[in-house]
Amino acid sequence: MKMISKLLTNTDVEKSLLVPSSSLGVLPFEEGHFFNINVIDKVGKAWSFPCFIQQSEGIESSVVSVGWLKFLCDRDVRVGDMVFLHQESMDDDSTGTGAQLKIEVKRKIRLLGEDIWAAVE
Rank of each mutant, 00 (worst) to 15 (best):
E121S: 13
E57H: 01
I40E: 05
V77A: 03
S94N: 08
L85M: 14
L8F: 03
C51K: 12
I53G: 06
G80N: 10
I40L: 03
R75I: 03
S56T: 07
I37L: 15
F34W: 02
T11N: 09
D74L: 11
E121G: 13
E60S: 02
R75D: 02
P20F: 06
T95A: 14
A118K: 07
I37W: 13
E104M: 04
Q100R: 15
I59W: 06
D81H: 08
A46Y: 01
L7S: 13
G98T: 13
R78T: 11
S61K: 04
T97F: 15
K45C: 00
W68C: 10
T95W: 00
W47M: 10
A118S: 10
K6M: 08
D76G: 09
S5G: 08
V66N: 09
S21D: 09
V43H: 07
Q55A: 01
L85T: 03
V66M: 13
Q100I: 13
L72A: 11
V26Q: 07
W47Y: 14
V64A: 11
F71G: 03
D92E: 14
S61Y: 12
A46K: 04
C73D: 15
L85R: 02
W117N: 00
H86L: 05
P50W: 01
K106L: 01
K2A: 08
N38E: 08
E104P: 01
I53Y: 01
N36C: 03
I40G: 02
V63K: 12
R107K: 09
S23C: 11
S5E: 13
I59H: 07
G67R: 03
S56E: 07
K45H: 02
P50I: 12
K6D: 03
L69R: 10
G25P: 00
S56C: 03
M1A: 14
G25Q: 06
M90R: 15
M90G: 11
I37V: 15
K108C: 10
